[in-house]
Design a binder for these strands. Structure first.
Lengths: 178, 178
DNA sequence: CGACCATACCTCGACGCCGAGGTATAGCGG
DNA sequence: CCGCTATACCTCGGCGTCGAGGTATGGTCG
């Protein structure tokens, strides 16, 4: 997820580590703040993999800033990742949101629509949180207000997203089902 | 999160590993399937910490089943965790949902309400995903349909949950603000 | 002028998670 | 009786994340 977000932000324009950190914490920071000890090794991994290059800017600020540029391989890696996301990118809301934040970089509307359809298929799967044997339990069946709330909120989210998905697929000139 | 879920399920009644796995995958499995390599070490950690005991049941099934029982320390640990959740339990939706699933084990309505109020405070914080300098960007300001959707869905979820939180706090006989 | 904070980068050990692999029995269909 | 699947448990290496720590400069305030 971090890799995806780094590539996504750098796709727009080069940034140095600290700027990147601020962008990242705006995107996912209220949910899960990312720490230096996570970010810098991640940058280094991407550098080693040849997806970005660091250019030292001996300059304005205190420490020598390293401006991070995506390489052509990095740009391709982002587009590939967006075009064919891992299952977890589709199912985990945090990762899906990260993916959505950069999906516009996949220039082809048909490819974008294909990704949205995968999320649609995932949301359409019947999935409850609790079962009695085989039978899924609905929100109404709980006396427990907390489990009821859990199911209620999940359902509301799911409905809002389904509505948006259908509207956006139509907007892209793509049918919801293939 | 796994620790919380294991303690939560075992609080209701003893289970053996395999049953536990099925409960866990119903609760969080559609989002992030949990693997054996995660579950069994987690059980062992809880055992080492004295929060649960394993009782071998030489019996019915194929392999000797270990029925897992919470100890008194385990029951206390769950209640403590529920009473004073970590920040991530409040902010991360996956973890928050897990917490909600077991919040009823905190018998005291005032303590339950205090936890709900923490979530309320978190949701009330103004938090956007994207900024232009200092200014948060609203959904309407994006031409990009994906970022617009991201903000729209996040807002819908947030509103549904706020509604439920207020209703449930009232139901518990507790004001939304202290 | 010293205290303090923001900027900017980096390292390290600990720890949890994952996937891939392994072991073994029970039950079913062919 | 063989192969298959479900049940049930476990280990291991690899990897990503985290928190705590360190280093250094520039700007602001009293």
């Amino acid at each position: 997820m971090l890799k995806l977000a780094i590539l996504g932000f750098l796709y727009d324009r080069p940034l140095h580590g600290y700027e990147l950190r601020r962008h990242l914490s705006a995107l996912t920071g209220h949910v899960r703040p990312i720490s230096d000890g996570t970010l810098y090794p991640a940058i280094k991994r991407l550098e080693t993999a040849g997806l970005l290059v660091r250019e030292t800017e001996p300059g304005t600020a205190a420490a020598p800033r390293h401006t991070l540029h995506l390489t052509e391989a990095g740009r391709t890696a982002l587009r590939d990742r967006l075009r064919e996301p891992e299952p977890l990118d589709i199912s985990d809301e945090n990762r899906w949101f990260t993916l959505l934040a950069f999906l516009r970089h996949l220039a082809d509307p048909a490819a974008q629509a294909a990704v949205l359809r995968r999320r649609l298929a995932f949301l359409a799967e019947p999935a409850s949180f609790f079962y009695e044997g085989e039978r899924p339990l609905g929100a109404e069946e709980f006396a427990d207000p907390f489990r009821r709330g859990l199911l209620l909120v999940a359902r509301a989210t799911s409905e809002a997203e389904l509505g948006w998905l259908h509207a956006t697929l139509a907007e892209l000139g793509e049918p919801a089902a293939e």
